[in-house]
Structure formats: C-alpha cells, structure tokens
Simulated assay, not measured.
Amino acid sequence: MSDEEVLSQEEVESLLTAMEAQAAPPTAAAAPSSPERRARSREKVAPYDFKRPERVGKEQVRALQTLHEGFGRNFGAALSALVRSIVEVKLTSVDQLTYSEFVFSLENPTCFNLLRAEPLEGNLILDINPSILYPIIDRLLGGGKGSGSLARRPLTEIELRLVGRITTLFLRELRHAWENVLDLTLSVDRVESNPQLVQIVPPNEVVVLISFELTIGDVRGMMNLCIPFNSIERISSRLAANSWVSYGRPTRSPEAIARVSRQLDGSLVEVVVELAQTTISTAELLGLRVGDIITTDKDVSEPLRIEIQGATKFLASPGALKGRKAVQIESTLDTPPKAAATPPVAAKKT
C-alpha cells in the first residue's frame, strides 16, 4: 500500500464512528465520541458495597433522628433527677452499618443490655459505655464529683441493680418517644459484659445505630441503641409519615391528671389568713411601740380571706378551738379576684 492510500487519523475515527452507529440498535443512544463525554458518563456511576447495603432510606433516618432528639432531652431530665446532678444527653449520630461492625467497635467488658420491644421481632441492644456508667453508679452510691479511675471489670450484682434503675428510665422515655409510631412494650431480657458472645442477627445484617453522648460535669461517655433493620422493616412506612412529629406535645389524659393530683396530695403549702389591711405613714411606722393599736376600716362581721401559696381560695370567720386561735371556712372562691396593689403595711396572721 502506497503512502497516498494510508488513511489519516480523522478518517479512521470517522469510519469507526460510522460502524458503531450501524451496529447499535435504533433506540440506543449514540456512544460518546470524545474523552470528555466518556468521563462525564463515568461520573454518574456510584460504587455499591454489598457488605454494607443502604437499606434504610434517608427519610426514615431523618425521622429517627428527630424522634430521638426529643427522647434525649427527656431522658437527660429524668436521669438528672435520678443522680441529683445535671446530665446532658445529646444525640450524636444515626447510622446504618453491619452488626459485626457495631459489635467490634464496643469495649470489652461493657454493659450490653438485650431488650425486648414487642410487637417488634427479635431483640434491640442498649450499650452503656463504662466511661460514663461507673461515674453514674458512683453518684447513686453517694460519691462526689470526682471521676476517679475507670474500672475494667464486669458489673457486680449490686451494680447491676443500680443499672436497672437507669435502663428503666431509658425504656420509659423510649416508649413515650415511640408511642406515636408504635405502642411498644419494652423490657430487659438479659445483661451481658462481652458483646462478642452475643449474636442477635447475622454478622452482615444491617442495623441502625443511634448514638448518644452523656455528659456529667467533666465526665463524658457514649450510650448506643442498636435496632436491627429486620425488626423495623415492616413499620418503616410509619417512620416515613409525620406521626412522630407530635412527640413532646401529648394531650392531658384523665389518668395523667389523676397521677399528678396524687403526687400533689402530700405537698406542703403555705396557708395565710388575712385579718385586715390598712395604710400608715413611715413616721407612724417608726413611732410604733409595744402595746400600740393599729386601727383598720374592716368591719368585724366581714369574712376573712385565706390564701394558699399566695392565691385567695377561701372565705372564713375567726374563732377559737381548744384555747387556740382558729378560723372556720365558710365558702370557696372558684375564681380568685385580682390582687390589688400591695399596701405598705398589712396585718396578717399565719
């Protein structure tokens, strides 16, 4: 072949393009003819890891995050009342990973609680890191604010009972957080110290890991709630709905009102009987001596006002009982009148 019969580079590329166009099906798009187009097409391809399949949708993850943010605030308040110290509970992440990755990321020994959450299938896991668990136990036993050295051992029988008080608070608030999604019956199945000896799902099964950071003074630690995906798979559509938004604004049921009333029955309140009111000048006040009498405009037949914690609730008449001054309640004020401007001096008897 002579030099005149040799095809140029442009001619070779045009022939190859024409052959590819003829070989391609009519409905298929033309192949990219430049390196720039081929690079753009490769950018659209996302790698897929079969060991870590993304089975939980973004909408479900956002729902779980919003739901457990409110749970963290309520659990922190309940835990603060238990340990009589300020405890901050902050939601740090909501991730999905395999069960084996979750287990091997934990310390050994740790506080590994297997939970039952009926009607969900299988078990849930609550892991409490020893770095925050032992300081909480120390405070429950009367310890001070010092963190001390961290123990590297399984929990004793006494410590397990104290941990039961913590998990009871956790399950109570968790049930309240989920009540708008599903009415759960939560309980602790058993407590283990070595997480690698417990297998509730296959190692490659996807789980949802909800992590909280607990802070007590200068001590911090993690608390993890592990939910296998197969446990919530059949209710995932409820997590996509907006039913969880109403968490934190429950209606007042008659049972809740009765429970609060029972708790208030034994409360101590201040009872004040107002005998009369009058106004005197500062000079008269400074000139008062023992035996002086302050006159008022109140008639002796007018009822006395009884105040409960500063609010006028009853009308009464004065008297005596067994040699002591007393009052007899005559009527109840359903709507207390607005308090008038406080006078400089008021004669009251408690």
Rank of each mutant, 00 (worst) to 15 (best):
E255V: 09
Q277N: 09
E274W: 04
P254C: 01
V272F: 05
R252S: 14
D265S: 13
W244F: 15
L286E: 15
Q199F: 02
N230K: 12
S231W: 09
L268M: 11
T278W: 00
I293E: 12
D265I: 11
A177M: 08
R220L: 09
V207P: 04
V273L: 03
Q263T: 07
S193F: 01
N242P: 00
R289K: 15
N230D: 14
R262T: 08
V269K: 07
M223W: 02
N180A: 12
V272W: 00
L304C: 06
P203H: 06
T278V: 04
S237H: 02
N242H: 14
T279D: 04
V198E: 11
G266F: 07
R190N: 10
G287M: 11
D265N: 12
S237I: 06
L239V: 00
P195W: 06
R252K: 12
L288C: 07
S211M: 07
A256H: 10
A258P: 06
L182C: 02
P228E: 05
E179L: 10
V290S: 12
T295Q: 11
R289G: 13
R190E: 11
S261D: 13
V245H: 09
I280T: 02
V181C: 07
S261G: 09
L184V: 01
A240F: 00
S301F: 10
V198S: 13
L304H: 01
R238I: 03
V245E: 14
P202N: 04
S301G: 09
V272A: 00
E233G: 00
V208L: 06
I257H: 04
R259E: 15
Q199C: 02
V273S: 05
V219M: 12
D297R: 13
S246R: 15
L286V: 13
T185G: 09
E307A: 11
F212L: 12
I210L: 08
W244I: 10
R190A: 10
S211Q: 14
V272Y: 02
S231V: 03
G287P: 01
Q263L: 15
D218R: 14
P203M: 02
D297E: 15
R220E: 12
I293C: 11
A256R: 14
D299R: 13
Q196N: 14
A241C: 00
R190H: 09
D218A: 13
N242Y: 13
L184M: 01
V271D: 06
L268Q: 11
I227F: 01
D183F: 06
K298M: 01
L182H: 02
W244T: 05
V269A: 08
I210C: 04
L288S: 07
V219D: 12
P254H: 07
S281N: 07
S267W: 09
G248I: 08
E233M: 03
L225M: 14
R262S: 10
L239G: 06
D292G: 05
